[in-house]
Structures are given as structure tokens and as C-alpha cells.
Design a protein around this nucleic acid. Structure first.
Lengths: 199, 199
DNA sequence: TTGCCATGTGAATCCGGATTCACTACCGTA
DNA sequence: TACGGTAGTGAATCCGGATTCACATGGCAA
């Protein structure tokens, strides 16, 4: 599978990119060392010139992708900064959902697919960060009297988790009679608004 | 680890039980063929006298446990059959959560931990069934005017998924500063009531 | 020119399980 | 007592992937 070799891009980057692409296409299972190296146009051994182990490579991929997601969510919140909290929350979670639906396999890998302890730890850390983005707006909403008092951390976790898992179904490899993306998004918006106690 | 051998119980059953126990304690990873056989007080080869493969054994364990969960949820709904739908829904999901919190490792295995295609297929099937239990009460509630119109299937999925993932955090192996079970249950009850649009 | 370092190679090796199989032990029946 | 079938044994084998390592190659500085 010798690709049109992107010699412009340094090997290390190419390896990271190959790994991400393979995960996007077929989950962690599809991203074997040989496959990754192959796609990057190098030999398997080369991977070990740039990363101490496959795990570490995965961690780096994972971090980069999660950071991108977090940025997208924060940006969404930013854009709505002058709108009421419920609208902001709806937007933030809709952003999360939209992106997941656009890249289902990757989303599944980020949200649920276990890999190894190193990556799993990273996952937990990022879940926490997503929840914090939500929690922030929840607090603001409560402060402004736009939302009722509630356990902010748990609601935030339930929302991230909730939307995540709600997506995992529609996302999952073999689901057949899946509803359209628009329907999913719509139902999730309603769900979020209600769950936070918006009018 | 030759246990006090329960020769009263047939080997096949003992194997199923060992597997379940090992999964409860350490997830699928801890349930190797040798470990399972060991705990059942037989040799590895014996497992293959009773099951065509490890996968098939897992599927059987998984089915049994999921069926038990489903029964618990249905029973909870049954008991509340004369109460309003929102109360029933709260009860059903609280049952789900309570049981998960009581047996975190197993819950994690059922809800999220990937194993192999056979078992994963089973998981999807059961998620669907849990969602149907919810959907049933949602429909009843809408019919009785106790709940607003909504996309029943998606809300049900979001709730099962939502509670599931919300639990996964608190459940997960290494989470430290986890809130008390009571707090989690409480926040989830509120969450559920709001999410379905109850007054 | 020579030596050294960084990078790349890919076949050989290692490793952790699942799976097999030739053999034993026991039980009920002819 | 012999026979066949069922259950059990556990060391040997197989298998898929990560990891290693002895051997290039090319650039750069002494």
C-alpha cells in the first residue's frame, strides 16, 4: 500500500495521522503497528524510532483529537456568550453531537472503546473536561436565574454521558434502522433543554 | 486455587458462574480460560467439553445477566403500575442505577466494555430491550397526558444511554473523588424527571 | 576522507492467551 | 468382564500482533 508519499510532512506526523485515520475508519482494532506504518509509508520498526511504544502513540493521537473536540465545544459556547444559558447549553451539546455524527467511528473510539490503561486514563480526563465546559454554563444559568438549582457536576456528567451514549446507539457499527441525523439532533436538543430544567 | 469443590453443581453451571464472578471482579480481561476453569475446579480443556469456544461461554453469561437486569426493571415498573408514568420512569431508571452501583465492575462490563463481536451484538440487543421498557412507560405517560409529546424511541435511548454513561464515570475503576451513591441516585432521579418533561 | 548520528528496514523473536488432542478415569450396560 | 460413551486432563501447539535488532543509507562536521 505504498501511498503517494507525503515526504513534505515529517515521519512522526505522518505516523500520528495514519493512526488517527485508521481509528476513524475501523477503530483501534484496525490500527495495528504494521497498518499504521504501512499507511505512513514506512516500516514497522520505524514507529519505534519516534515513539517508545504503540500505547504512547495512541495517547498522543487521543489527546490531539480530544483537545480538538474540547476546543470546538468551547468555541460554540463563546459564540453564544450573549445568549441565555439554556441556548448556550443546547448549542454546546449540539456541537458535540454533530461532530460525533459526522465521524461516528472516531466518536465511538473516543467515547467508549477501551484500548489500554494509558488511553483509558486519558479518556476519563477528557470526559471531565467536557463536563466542565457544560458545568460552567450550568452555573452561569443558575446564577442568572435561568435554570433551577441542581447538582451541577452530576447534571453535567449525565449530559455529556447521556448525549454520548445516546449517540453510541445511532453510531454503532451495525445499527440498521437508525433515524436520520436531523432527527437525532432534534431529539437531543429537546432532551438537553428539558434535562437542565429550562423553561 | 483449588476451591472447596461444589460437586453438587454440574460443571457447566460452575463454569458459567466462575466466568461471571471473574468478570464482576476484574472485567473481561480477568476472565481468561485458565482462570475460569481454575476457579470452577477443572482443567482448561474441560471448558471445551461444554462450550464450543470462550466467546460462546461469554455470550451465555452475558445473556443471563442482562436478562436478570431486564427482569428487575420490568418488575420495578410492574410494582408501580398504578402510579403516574413519571414516577414509574423514575423508579425504573433508579432500579437500573442502584443495581449498577451495587456491582460496578459487572455494570461496566455490560454497559461499555468491548469484548468481541458476538458479545457486542448481544449488548446492542439488550440496550434495545432496556430502552423498550422505558419507551413503554413514556408512551403510557404521553397517552395519559402526564408527559408532553416527544420522540419516544430517542428519549428512551437517551435515558438508558444517559444513565448508563452517567454511571460509567462514578463506576469506573480509578475514579477517586466520586460522589456518594445516594447523591448520584438523587441527581439521576431529578435528571430523569426533567428529561422526560414531567411537571 | 572518515566517523558519527539520526533515520529507516523488515525478518526474526517474543508473548500472552485460546485451542487442540492423545490419554486417563469413571459409569452404566451387554 | 468387556465395551463404549461421557467427562476430565494439561502439556503442546497455534496464532496474531507488538517489539527488537543487526544491518543499510545519507548527511554533516571534524
Amino acid at each position: 500500500m505504498a501511498e503517494a508519499e507525503q515526504v513534505l510532512i515529517p515521519t512522526r506526523e505522518r505516523l500520528l495521522r495514519s493512526a488517527r485515520e485508521l481509528i476513524e475508519e475501523g477503530g483501534y482494532g484496525a490500527a495495528s503497528v504494521v497498518a499504521i506504518a504501512d499507511r505512513a509509508g514506512v516500516a514497522a520498526g520505524t514507529l519505534y524510532r519516534h515513539f517508545p511504544s504503540k500505547q504512547e502513540l495512541f495517547v498522543e493521537v487521543f489527546r490531539a483529537v480530544c483537545a480538538r473536540e474540547e476546543r470546538a465545544m468551547r468555541a460554540a459556547a463563546e459564540q453564544m456568550s450573549s445568549n441565555p444559558a439554556p441556548d448556550r447549553l443546547e448549542m454546546v451539546l449540539a456541537t458535540f453531537a454533530r461532530r460525533a455524527l459526522r465521524n461516528p467511528r472516531l466518536a465511538w473510539a473516543l467515547i467508549a472503546e477501551p484500548v489500554d490503561p494509558l488511553v483509558d486514563a486519558e479518556r476519563l480526563a477528557y470526559r471531565e473536561r467536557y463536563a466542565q465546559v457544560i458545568a460552567q454554563d450550568l452555573r452561569a444559568g443558575i446564577g442568572a436565574g435561568e435554570l433551577p438549582e441542581q447538582n451541577v457536576e452530576l447534571t453535567a456528567a449525565a449530559l455529556v454521558g447521556g448525549c454520548g451514549e445516546a449517540l453510541v446507539g445511532p453510531l454503532s457499527p451495525v445499527s440498521s434502522k437508525r433515524p436520520s441525523d436531523a432527527e437525532v439532533m432534534d431529539a437531543l436538543r429537546t432532551f438537553v433543554r428539558r434535562a437542565v430544567g429550562a423553561a
